[in-house]
Simulated scan of single mutants.
Amino acid sequence: MNGRYVPTLLGRLPVDASARTTDSALQIMFRGSRTQAVTADMPKGGFIADPRSPGRLYVGTEAAGVFRSEDGGATWVPDSSGLGSLRIWSLVQHPITGVLYAGTEPAALYRKHPGATEWTPCTPFTTLPRYREWTSPNPPRHEPRVRGIGLDPERPQAIAAAIEEGWLVLSLDGGVTWTNLTEGSDFDSHSVLFAPGQPQVLLSTSGDGFYRSDDGGAHFRPSHTGLEGRYLSPLVLHPARPRTLYAYCTRNYPPSWFQPGAGAEGAFFRSDDQGGHWRRIGNTPLIPGGCWTACGDPREPETFCAGLTDGSVWLTRDGGKQVEPILEGLGLVSVVSI
Rank of each mutant, 00 (worst) to 15 (best):
Y58A: 07
L91V: 04
A40R: 04
D152P: 06
S90E: 09
R56V: 11
I88H: 10
P106W: 01
A107V: 03
I28Y: 09
K44Y: 15
V146F: 09
G65K: 11
T135H: 12
T120M: 11
Q27V: 12
A74N: 14
E105P: 00
R145D: 14
E118Q: 15
A63P: 08
L57N: 08
P78D: 04
L86E: 11
M29T: 11
G103L: 02
R68S: 13
S85L: 03
Y131W: 14
P124K: 14
M29I: 00
P139N: 00
F125G: 08
Q27L: 12
I48M: 06
Q93F: 04
K112N: 03
Q27R: 15
Y131D: 06
I48K: 03
A49Q: 12
M42E: 00
P121C: 08
G98L: 01
F125R: 12
P106F: 01
T126F: 01
W119D: 03
C122Y: 05
A49V: 15
T123G: 09
R130E: 15
A49H: 09
I88L: 13
G65V: 05
P139H: 07
S90M: 02
R145W: 06
E62C: 10
R56G: 05
G60T: 14
T135Q: 03
D79H: 13
V99P: 06
R111F: 15
C122G: 03
W119G: 04
S33I: 13
T120Y: 02
F67A: 07
P114M: 02
H94F: 06
P137A: 03
G150F: 09
T123S: 11
R52Y: 00
T123D: 11
E143M: 09
L109Q: 05
G65H: 11
S33T: 13
P153G: 02
R130V: 10
T123R: 05
E118A: 13
L86H: 14
H94P: 00
A49I: 09
D50H: 14
Y110R: 00
F30W: 11
G32H: 02
A116V: 10
R56F: 06
S85A: 02
A37P: 07
R130F: 14
L109E: 00
P153C: 08
P54E: 02
L151G: 08
G32A: 04
L151T: 09
P43F: 08
S80H: 03
D71F: 11
P78Q: 03
Y58I: 06
G60I: 12
T75V: 07
W89N: 15
L100V: 03
T35L: 15
Q27F: 10
G46S: 00
S33Q: 09
W134S: 11
A116P: 05
E143S: 13
R52K: 04
P153W: 01
D50K: 06
F30G: 07
K112I: 00
S69A: 05
P124A: 02
P124W: 06
P129C: 01
S53L: 09
L83S: 13
V92L: 06
I88E: 05
A116N: 08
Q93H: 04
V38S: 11
D50V: 00
L91Q: 04
R52Q: 07
E154D: 12
P140E: 07
F47S: 01
A116E: 10
